[in-house]
Design a protein around this nucleic acid. Structure first.
Lengths: 137, 137
DNA sequence: GCTTGACATTAGAGCGGCTCCAAGGTCTAG
DNA sequence: CTAGACCTTGGAGCCGCTCTAATGTCAAGC
């Protein structure tokens, strides 16, 4: 399949795909007669993992490393650092989701206020009472 | 309060805070004798809104615009475009959260495989059966 | 047959949003 | 009086795209 189709399927763009390739993070796929990139299902599989890992906010380099190893069926060679990074990011994901739920509630209020042309009502009251550790990330 | 303290409370960094200020997205706070920035609760409130909106992935410019208006108590003057953007992003937030839950399940599998030194097991099987529109963002 | 329009190619420039550095000043604790 | 944590500045660097320009390919419709 061609670049745009695959990009759409995986929720990415041809721009990024070419960018990954230039960086050597994805192998150059075969080309058709006319020079167009032609992706196999295996290519797609690898890219998919890469994209997934990127959504975790793993640095591109790490995401690519994992994707590469797994693509070669040497999944078990993923280093302990990388495994740790993965665990870490998954935990972060949970935190992010909580934060988001929280934020969302407050934005709902904000929108309510906006709609009603009402008071600015201090979104997420700050300071004194707001001491639940918030530092990370 | 000083820059680092506020940054920590809001889960941001002095770097970004100065960056926002340079860009004119936050007003320069008062300085103490020695030239240190000294933030009031009002400053904090505004920054907090800005940070919150940024977590929604609103472009910095828009986030700053909303924060500025609200900080001046002219919250109701937030343009309809901006309101729309806000609604939009909130919806996106929901989608993201779903995606994340999904991704997380699959990464849990991946981790399982990694731990067991097992098969690469194609994370999120791609292609044929995977036609649930994924384009957006 | 020819045009239109959607897709593809490349190298390279541009951008958003931080993130950090160097060189220096200030303040507190021991 | 020194060590260490904090603060200041302007500017450089970085990540990860995202787009542009110039050009090529191809299927559909008149």
């Amino acid at each position: 399949m061609r670049i745009k189709e695959l990009a759409q399927r995986l929720g990415t763009t041809p721009y990024s795909m070419r960018f990954y390739e230039r960086r050597g993070l994805l192998p150059s796929p075969d080309r058709t007669e006319n020079g167009y990139r032609e992706y196999t299902d295996a290519d797609a599989q690898r890219l998919r993992l890469l994209v997934g890992l990127r959504q975790l906010d793993l640095p591109l380099s790490q995401a690519a490393e994992i994707a590469a190893l797994c693509a070669e069926g040497r999944c078990e060679e993923v280093s302990t650092e990388l495994r740790a990074a993965l665990t870490d990011k998954r935990a972060g994901l949970q935190r992010r989701m909580d934060e988001m739920r929280f934020l969302d509630r407050h934005l709902a209020h904000l929108q309510g206020d906006l709609a009603a042309g009402e008071a600015p009502r201090p979104l997420i009251t700050l300071g004194k009472e707001d001491r639940h550790d918030h530092a990370m990330r």
